[in-house]
């Protein structure tokens, strides 16, 4: 049981990277980005392309760090893939969402367009890599470390937690300390007032997509390291992403983080009682329960 909770926290931290981006985009643009899960997929596959396609060709050595399952290749691929997906998200905004915004399209039209974007991303992944499972390093099982309470944890998983923690701290510092971070929070509060204050809200939107895309990519790669890659991986993440976002109060980054950890733990712990195939159903049940009991989320309601 304790082990399942730890695995849940690992899964939850990966969900958090997607949920935070989803909630940031919602906070600023007020629509449900159904393509957000597929941005995670995109990140995972860009990293796969770099690790198995580009870097061997460049002669970057394939050694691993200690008992981790990856080495220099992944260390380099990680930030590059984040940057690529950030750029792709901004590009999607330019060609898809911004024209719709100019026409003052409603949230339903925006969300359905995002659904279309999600199909495009997934199909591109299937065309390029096929519908099969992929691994960053096939066939190597890394030994687990024994922690007290009979918790088995792989070194990879500890690194995943550390990576997510540092990304969240970086984002926190960005939002609290920098001018653009504060402008992002202001725009999420009240876009109209941000505009009359002289804040360039289009630039804020570009930053929002960039950060959202980069975090999603990070989440996708970490899931790929922890489990495996599959073209549908991001799509399957969508339900827990939304559940975590709603649980934390839509638009609330810190809420999304807590919501994601709760979702991760709930999903993993459920496998103690149910078959693992029911994991997505757990996300769904949690989401319905929140919507029935506390639709504004645990941290919602403070907003005016």
């Amino acid at each position: 049981m304790a082990e399942l909770i730890v695995y849940g926290i690992v899964l939850g931290s990966i969900i958090a990277l997607g949920a935070i981006g989803l909630t940031l985009v919602y906070g600023i643009l007020r629509f449900a980005n159904f393509a957000h899960g597929d941005l995670m997929t995109a990140g995972a596959y860009v990293a796969l392309f770099l690790v198995t396609g580009i870097f061997p060709w460049l002669g970057i050595p394939d050694t691993t760090f200690g008992s981790l399952s990856f080495g220099w290749r992944m260390t380099l691929a990680f930030p590059i893939a984040m940057a690529c997906v950030a750029a792709a998200s901004i590009l999607f905004d330019r060609i898809l969402y911004r024209p719709l915004r100019r026409k003052q399209s409603g949230p339903v039209i925006m969300a359905i367009s995002a659904l279309g974007a999600s199909f495009i991303i997934r199909m591109i992944v299937i065309i390029l890599w096929g519908a099969d499972y992929h691994f960053y390093r096939p066939g190597v099982l890394r030994p687990a470390i024994m922690l007290p309470l009979e918790i088995k944890i792989r070194p990879d998983q500890i690194l995943i937690l550390a990576t997510v923690l540092s990304l969240v701290i970086l984002l926190y510092l960005f939002l609290q300390r920098t001018k653009m971070g504060k402008a992002m929070r202001a725009t999420a509060d009240n876009m109209e007032l941000a505009r009359v204050s002289g804040i360039d809200t289009e630039r804020v939107i570009v930053w929002t997509w960039g950060i959202g895309g980069a975090l999603a990519a990070a989440g996708g790669i970490l899931y790929g390291i922890d489990v495996q890659l599959h073209p549908g991986m991001g799509w399957h993440f969508l339900l827990p992403l939304f559940a975590a976002t709603i649980l934390g109060g839509i638009g609330n980054m810190y809420g999304a983080l807590i919501g994601a950890l709760i979702m991760g733990v709930a999903q993993q712990v459920s496998t103690f009682y149910l078959m693992p195939t029911y994991k997505p159903a757990v996300a769904f049940v949690v989401m319905i329960l929140i919507l029935l009991v506390r639709p504004q989320g645990i941290f919602g309601g403070g907003r005016s």
Partner: peptide
């Protein structure tokens, strides 16, 4: 930017920001 500012009747502050941050946004 040309030297005129406006205070709307309603929703004229950023509620989740602190007082200081609200003023900083005015100086964006």
């Amino acid at each position: 930017r040309k030297g005129m500012s406006y205070v709307p009747q309603v929703n004229n502050v950023f509620p989740s920001l602190t007082i200081q941050e609200n003023l900083e946004m005015g100086a964006f």
